[in-house]
Structures are given as structure tokens and as C-alpha cells.
Amino acid sequence: MDLSAINPVLLVASLMVAATPLLLAAIGELVVERAGVLNLGVEGMMIVGAISGFAIAVETGSPWLGFIGAAVGGAILSLLFVVLTQVALANQVASGLALTLFGLGLSALMGQSYVGIKPPAMGKLDIPVLSDLPVVGPILFSHDLVLYLGIALTGAVWWMLKYSRAGLILRAVGENHDAAHALGYKVIRIRVMAIMFGGACAGLGGAYISLIRVPQWTEGMTAGVGWIALALVVFASWKPWRALLGAYLFGGVTVIQLNLQAAGVAIPVEYLAMSPYVITILVLVILSADKSSAPASLGRTFHASH
């Protein structure tokens, strides 16, 4: 065993990278669920975002355009979910699952000619002096900008939900869509916007994997992150900062367990491998012991005549 081989600074820095795709997808889904819609298609929107972003970044040579393309790609795929659940009033669970399967297939098709290609590199933040500080520099000031975007988005969503009028309306729609409707709010329109926001965030999360974390395109490369994001929203009690905590915890334990393995710590690998799931669930369940509960209209179909 050689724990000194683990560099804590690099460890924190890489756990932030590992957590970001999960955070982006979870924040998007959190807004969707706060609006009372359960979209199980996160995985599908992520993988479509991953290939859309990758393809556009490769074609244009600009990772930024790639990320914009990923957000658009994810949002467009979520429109399919909109048509199914908000227009055709289909079951949300079934529609979401279908969206995931469709997204996985579609992304494989779109990605046919992008296997083995290297995407343009994303620049990292490099502030003179600050980025060179010991310890603080690598952890806080030397990442790619999308990572900061994820944190900023968490703050923005938290503020929007808690303090803004728009957030109040969104929550009203999610808690009791009939009452919101009676007050004159456009329930369907608000939900459509929330779903598209969720799609865009999932797309960004996917592109973060294909453009920064890995970076390359391979079929099925999101490998279940979307499902973890869905679980995370529930365990975070639909609260943005807890979702951030959960994502960092999950990313952190994932990276730490690999570090411990490489350092030869005498804990059976099986326990290490399951530790991210167990620890994240445990912490968030303990945190959610307060009264917070799911949005009351979550997963229920809204029809104005009901």
C-alpha cells in the first residue's frame, strides 16, 4: 500500500471533471421534474447530445459551437417527448424509456463516420498568478469553462426556483397543475420549456463526456450516466445544491476508488467498485430526512378540461 502516491490536489481536480456530466444532466432533469414532468429519457438525450456536439465540434473545429450544438441536439430530441406526452398525452414513463432507446440507436447511426476521430481540444482556464497557485490553482482555477458553467447553472437554477417569479410559476405548475391552470398560467407551454431546458442540459452533459472527459466518440459511451442523474434528482430531494453535492460525491468516490485500487489499498475491489453508489445514496437519504417531497403533480398528465 502506498497512499502517498495519491495526490489529493489532482484527485479533487479530477473528481470535479468526473462529476460534471452527471451534474449537468441532473440539474436539467431537476427543472423538468419541478415542472411536474418525469422524463426518463435523460440517457437518450445525453448520448444524442454527445454525438451532436462531437460532430459539430469536429466539423467546425470549435468546441464551443460543439457544446451549443449538443444543447440544441438534446433539446430537439426532447421535443419528441413533448409531442408524445404534452400533445398526444401519452404515458410519461413509457415515452421516456422509448426516448432513451431511440436516442441510443439514433446516436449510433449519427456517429458512424466519427469513430476514431479526435475532437478539437477545449481550452482550459488559465489566469496568470491564480492558476499557478499551489493547491488552490489546480482545484479552482485550471478547469475547462464548461465545468464552471455547470456550477453557475446550479446557482442560477437554485436562485430561479427560490426567488424569481418564473420559478414560483414553474413550481406551481409542478405542484398542482389544475390550480396553476385556473390562475391562468399556460401549463403546457411552461412544461414544454422545462422539458427543452432539460434536454439541452442533458445534451451538454453528454457532450462534456465526448468532448472533454474522454474525449472521443464511441457508441454507447454515456454508459448509464443518465440513469444515475435521474436517481440523483430523487435522492437530492429536487434541490439544486444537493444535486451538486450528490454529483461531486459520486464523481469523487468513483475517482477515489480507482486511486485506492492503483495505490494497492487492501480493500476488496468489489466493495470499492460499489462504493460510489452506496455512499451517494446513504448521504443523500440522510440529508433528505426533512420534509421535502416530490412535486405533487410529478408524472401526471395534464389536460385543460379535466
Binding site: 463526456i209 472527459r213 480507482l258 486511486n259 492503483a262
Partner: peptide
């Protein structure tokens, strides 16, 4: 891929 990349980085 994501896990393999993490393992390599570690």
C-alpha cells in the same frame, strides 16, 4: 469509455 479514461488518468 468514461470509466476507462478515469482509470487511465488515475
Amino acid at each position: 469509455p468514461a470509466k476507462e479514461a478515469d482509470a487511465a488518468k488515475v
